Simulated scan of single mutants.
Amino acid sequence: MSVTIKDVAKKAGVSPSTVSRVLSNNTRISRETSQKVRDVMEELGYHPNIMAKSLVSRTTETICVILPKPAEELFLNLFFMELIRGIVTQANRSGYDVLISSGGSEQEEVDAVSRLLKGKRVDGAILLYSRKDDQVVEFLKKNQFPFVLIGRSEKYPDILSVDNDNVQAAYDATKHLISLGHERIGFVSGPPNHIVSRDRLKGYMNALEEAGLEMRRDWIVEGEFLQESGYRAMSFFMNLPERPTALVVMDDFVSLGVLRGLHELGYKVPEDLCIVSFNNLSIAELASPPVSSMDIGIYNLGYTASQALIQSIQHDGDKHLQKRHIIPHRLVIRESSVYTPPKES
């Protein structure tokens, strides 16, 4: 015979309604009582009927993460693995499951979100990217579905979002290279339709302008967050009549491609080119040489996004909840940007 809520309540010495509140993570229940009830559940082998619970509460206690392109491509970059680790950790602590969905295009992403939310399979969504004129954001806003954006929206600055101050972070990275005496500084950017790419480009340009340094368009290369983008950028940069002596790179994974390209061309880091990258993944420290990188708190980005979304769901979009969360950044300096006098090309 299966164990019921009444059995758990009797064994724990509480009312059945208290057990129900523990199952729904009601904040009115003390941590001690909640733990006591959960210990009894485990002892008796009680498992709640999720389908029945969803019908009563009209919630699924599941959130979805929408990947902005095919998952097999994204998972090549450890940034997304760390981001999702933060999301899943916080969701599990709040009693929520995480469903991951992806699409090969924006329209496919919209279709995926529509199936999940209109089909009442999830309670809300986390978007891992902010893009200009994003169709997914438009769909979620129009249908008033709970969601959180990792990044920022130019069109809807009031939506729930978690981000870094990417303008300031890129400014700080560029200023570090300027402090080493570099005057010819290039920029390896990400996709131009991504807000983070535009914000970091702005920070880079602000630092150059403040220092009275030239900003040249041929020292800026756009690409994807893939090694291949960094590799291709080196073929371009190192063949310029006047090449940069230092680079700000959008992503650690891209910086690996930069290092590979430089090695094949016979150049050394930092002697021939200094590098500062972003994200401070483990691969930055393990690279040869270790790469200086801006730590943007990837895990905290995911954790805070999950927390903010679940709070919004549980409080039914309370207007008094904080809408914009900014995660601090810090530069971790390694061998790729130690002082070396800029060489003449």
Rank of each mutant, 00 (worst) to 15 (best):
N206W: 11
K36P: 01
E109W: 08
E43L: 15
A169D: 05
E335S: 08
L309P: 01
V269H: 02
V249A: 03
G181W: 06
T62V: 15
A112F: 09
S306R: 09
H325K: 02
D295R: 00
L256R: 07
S197D: 00
Q35K: 14
L23G: 11
I84R: 01
D7L: 06
G186H: 09
V249T: 02
H182Y: 11
D295V: 02
L128F: 13
M81I: 13
N239E: 11
A12Y: 06
Q90A: 01
M294Y: 04
S17K: 09
V162D: 10
M1Y: 02
E106L: 11
G86Y: 06
E138D: 15
R334W: 05
Y129A: 14
P192Y: 02
P48I: 10
S197T: 05
E210W: 07
G190L: 00
F237H: 09
R324A: 12
K120V: 10
V291C: 07
A12S: 15
L180Q: 14
V196R: 01
A233S: 13
N77P: 04
R200W: 01
A112M: 13
S161H: 10
N239M: 09
G181Q: 08
R28E: 15
L213N: 03
P157K: 09
S312A: 13
R324I: 12
G317D: 10
N166R: 04
L140H: 04
D111K: 08
R216C: 04
L127K: 02
R31N: 12
G223P: 06
L259K: 03
G181Y: 08
G266T: 07
K175E: 11
S288A: 14
E154T: 12
V338G: 06
T304R: 09
I100S: 05
V19G: 01
K175H: 10
S189H: 00
V148H: 02
A207C: 04
V65G: 05
G151F: 12
F237K: 11
V221P: 02
P146A: 04
K319I: 13
S293I: 04
S153L: 01
S105I: 11
P241G: 08
K6Q: 11
D318N: 07
W219G: 09
S179D: 09
D295H: 02
Q35A: 15
L201E: 10
N164H: 15
P328I: 05
T33Y: 03
M41L: 08
G212K: 00
R334A: 07
P244E: 11
L83I: 10
T89K: 12
F145T: 06
G261H: 12
E209A: 13
I313T: 03
V136H: 06
E228K: 10
V188R: 00
E32G: 00
Q35C: 00
Q135G: 05
K120C: 12
T340E: 00
R21M: 13
K323L: 06
R38I: 03
T89P: 00
D39Y: 00
D7N: 14
H194F: 15
I313M: 07
H263E: 15
I195G: 11
V332C: 00
G95I: 02
V162C: 14
V110W: 05
R28L: 14
D123P: 10
V113A: 15
V291A: 05
